[in-house]
Nucleic acid binder design. Structure first.
Lengths: 209, 209, 209, 209
DNA sequence: TATGAATGAGGTTTCATTCAT
DNA sequence: TATGAATGAAACCTCATTCAT
């Protein structure tokens, strides 16, 4: 059939397998949800067989948790560093933060994770708690710091920073979710640049002293 | 068997059966997701047996679609009527609209539906499209009308109403989603009144001419 | 295909199903051992489908335990009653006891259970303990009572009754085991009547004062 | 890598590998039964990897048969020699034979094999037949010779030697089986010395002319 | 010779669906 | 109309076996 019949039935790729499996699993979990994702499809997507998956993960649940954890840890540091080093107007800082989050989320797979956690939090409450503590609350805290900085410098009017942080974070979250759930169905594509510009514009005008 | 068994104490309200089943299904679908919800549990929750479900719905998928549709239709009219009849300042109209949506969603089960659609849109693209067309786009259109009314009356500054409508809708959607996914896990309860107040405050200041 | 095409796909037999399943399971577990017995075969042997088994038993392990327990409980009473009511020579009592045990074991399925417990005690230690306490030790105690009765009445010479009880019980046990493991292979059929007669003869001569 | 790597500290004794594997397999097969024993565990127990096993045995079944055969062959010769050379009272010969068998079985692993064959005879009938012919029937024949010798010399009363041989062998077999199945669970430990003394005592008294 | 990553058939278990009652 | 026992496809998971290294 094949020209030289030299392709081995499989390769030995111990180092890379976990990553490949995690990437495949992330994609399918996000697309279909936890329960509707079959491990055989994850394996196929990663180019291995069903059994191979079990060399690296104990069970479907363990794979799921690994997917979430693997994509959750390497985040947020960037945003915090940005706040620390900024010395211009706080409205500019806020703009940078919002745009930076969106770019970071797009790069890292966090958009998919966010959708996944929202959908599966009922079935994995401990993961939901972990997600909230590691991701959401750190992001929230960063936003609160920015708002308080703006008020302290007289650039923002007096605000309820703790209520407002979630109001401002919400559109970013929703953009991630839309991107993950509607975009794949080709429903109502969103112009994310215009969307973010509007968000920033609303904030800048709505917060200024 | 009994002598004069007129008027049984408990009627076999077959009229109500579908509604009871839909309510039970909504609750479980929202809690656990589509795939993880067992029809036997839906039936038990509604107080009937597994077989009975099939007298009213053809399949699990059909039940799911009915759940979504049943909770989607009786909405939005109220919001549209409110916009038509309002004659005060558009900022007040916007405030009423936001608060009205949240209350309506709370009353009607739309919060749960929103979470459900987000989670399952990948598995039910045609439902996702239906949901988008029937709900989201109508809500969006209403919001656009309000924004344009404000601009026309000189109460709002010039805006990209189409980009902004989604930015303003997002925090309301996210509040619904948080309420459905995190609240059941007792994670980070949100003070929805303060949250909505902040949203309205941000809009009023951010939009005014 | 069939003449009148009237045979329903299945019958509703809730009362009898568990018994039928237990009987089928006993046979196959004894023949093949626990691990080598497939639940599909158990179901087929009982004339039902795989899924039906799970209406009555939670798991393979639970089925196994039920099999053992169901066949263990209704035993031993007979033997104990016999000892209480006997008033002749103790050698005659011993003869009756030995023959009665063999007949009882043949009737009740205990022969198979004995083989099963021996084979699977390593995998189900708690069951092995249960079996030992409910069956073996009660049988042993009965045998000790008989031996002590014989010594007390001067019919048997002085003996170490506790060591001897197991020596006398052993040939009966082995007869059960041979019957279950070799007979199905048509290896070396044993004449159980002659075997038991020899055992009784050996005891009668070996015990008498 | 090392300069003068003569004489490695640990030799790669490929001569001993099969024996080590057989010993590991015997232990695990006896403990868990054939089907519940994983080849990976056998390999680990023998200190090699899974693949290595297949350099020495074709399959699990082949390993199992080798285990049984390897432990079956080097037996029985001793007992037969003892009978040939004995010239004292036959009761003393019988005592020696019984004690010798127990010691031999303890030494050789035959106890475990006996349990294994009993448990797996249904799944390996040809092995059961082999076992019966090589082991059981040779042992039986030896016992018959002893009984007939005793009768011929007027030391034993007239007996059905063929029925009796199995009655006398049974307690020895059962002692092996208890030792293998109940002792590992720490259930009802048996004092084998007292047990064997009782057996011998019963025989001596029960057989004498 | 030795390893252990990879495979895939086959087992246990679940659950949407059917249908005799 | 209502029930729930029965079904069987399909999922998760195991492990005997193969083979590139």
């Amino acid at each position: 059939m094949s020209a030289s019949a030299k392709e081995p039935r499989w390769e030995r790729r111990k180092q890379d397998r976990p990553q490949e499996l995690l990437a495949a699993a992330l994609q399918l979990f996000v697309e279909r949800g936890y329960a509707a994702t079959r491990l055989e499809d994850v394996a196929a997507q990663a180019g291995v067989s069903k059994g191979t998956l079990y060399l690296y993960f104990d069970s479907k649940e363990s794979l799921f948790k690994s997917v979430v954890r693997a994509h959750m840890l390497p985040l947020l540091d960037e945003a915090e560093a940005r706040v620390d080093s900024h010395d211009g107007h706080t409205a500019d800082l806020l703009r940078e933060l919002i745009l930076g989050w969106w770019q970071g989320a797009s790069r890292s797979g966090l958009k998919g994770i966010a959708k996944l956690m929202l959908a599966e939090s009922g079935n994995f409450p401990e993961l939901a708690r972990f997600y909230h503590e590691e991701i959401t609350s750190r992001g929230d805290a960063t936003l609160v710091r920015v708002l308080e900085r703006g008020m302290a410098r007289g650039e923002f009017r007096p605000l309820d920073a703790h209520a407002l942080k979630k109001v401002i974070a919400a559109p970013i979250m929703m953009l991630m979710l839309w991107d993950q759930s509607l975009a794949p169905c080709a429903i109502a594509p969103i112009d994310s640049a215009a969307y973010l510009a509007s968000l920033i514009d609303l904030c800048v005008h709505g917060l200024k002293a």
